[in-house]
């Protein structure tokens, strides 16, 4: 009976650990909201983070969007051709990109690039006592370090998503019309027929939410780092894993609510 109760104990403790962690992330989120309302916010800090999260992610997001659109077109083409509906490929890709893949892939890429960097940067600041130094100088670290990152992510991830959507559809057009010789007019008209403004907007709402998730989780993990260089590494890994999972899971629920 001993191993049984031990494993039960383990399960219980793990669940409690996650519940507790979730609570702490929510607490952090509310104090972020609180400090967001406290002027003055330094425009310069926000711009710096916008550059880091947004501008510097363009390349990787463009590549992701482009190849996703191209691959989907290639795959979809063979399926749709079976019943002579290859002109539907464009609209399928456009719907998929704007509703799901655009926001999700963009935020996963930004998580990997910027979310991890946030955790690592804040983690290093924690273990080298820079965060303590902020407290000592009567400057709140949440306001100085976390709020600009969260604001920048919430604004930039939707914008990157727009870029990914556009590039993805453009890539799909290139492969479909130029390489696979799908009729151009039908291809485009089907996109117009299927795609609606709401598809684009709901994708952007999702992207903003994912931006919030990845920045809050990244900052939370970095902010609560313990244990030196190893701790920083652990925080970074966990930030990426937790953000990615949260993004994928919450995407399901957001989709269920929105459509």
């Amino acid at each position: 009976m001993k191993p049984f109760s031990a494993s039960l104990d383990y399960v219980g403790r793990t669940v409690m650990h996650y519940v507790e962690e979730m609570g702490r992330i929510m607490t952090l989120f509310f104090s972020i909201l609180f400090w967001m309302m406290r002027p003055p916010l330094k425009a310069r800090n926000i711009f710096k983070q916008m550059e880091f999260v947004g501008v510097k992610s363009i390349f990787v997001v463009v590549l992701t969007g482009l190849f996703t659109g191209m691959v989907m077109t290639l795959q979809g083409y063979h399926g749709f051709r079976l019943f002579g509906a290859e002109t539907m490929v464009g609209s399928t890709v456009a719907l998929g990109m704007t509703r799901e893949l655009g926001p999700v892939l963009t935020s996963l890429m930004v998580t990997a690039r910027a979310g991890s960097a946030m955790a690592a940067e804040l983690g290093t600041m924690r273990v080298t006592e820079q965060i303590d130094a902020l407290y000592v100088m009567a400057a709140n670290p949440i306001k100085h370090l976390i709020v600009p990152r969260v604001i920048a992510s919430v604004l930039m991830v939707p914008l990157l998503t727009v870029v990914a959507n556009f590039v993805g559809i453009a890539g799909s057009y290139f492969v479909g019309v130029n390489l696979l010789n799908i009729n151009e007019g039908d291809f485009i008209n089907n996109i117009y027929k299927m795609l609606e403004l709401n598809d684009i907007y709901s994708g952007l709402v999702k992207a903003a939410f994912f931006g919030l998730v990845l920045s809050v989780v990244g900052c939370y993990k970095g902010f609560n780092t313990t244990g030196g260089a190893e701790g920083v590494g652990r925080a970074t890994t966990q930030a990426v894993v937790i953000s990615s999972i949260t993004i994928l899971v919450s995407d399901y629920f957001l989709t269920a609510i929105m459509f």
Partner: peptide, 23 residues
């Protein structure tokens, strides 16, 4: 930094504007 961010926002908004106008 501001110029880069501004340019990016401008491009993003133009793309969004183009797509929503088409749709």
């Amino acid at each position: 930094t501001e110029a880069k961010v501004g340019l990016f926002i401008l491009i993003g908004m133009l793309l969004l504007g183009y797509m929503t106008m088409q749709v």
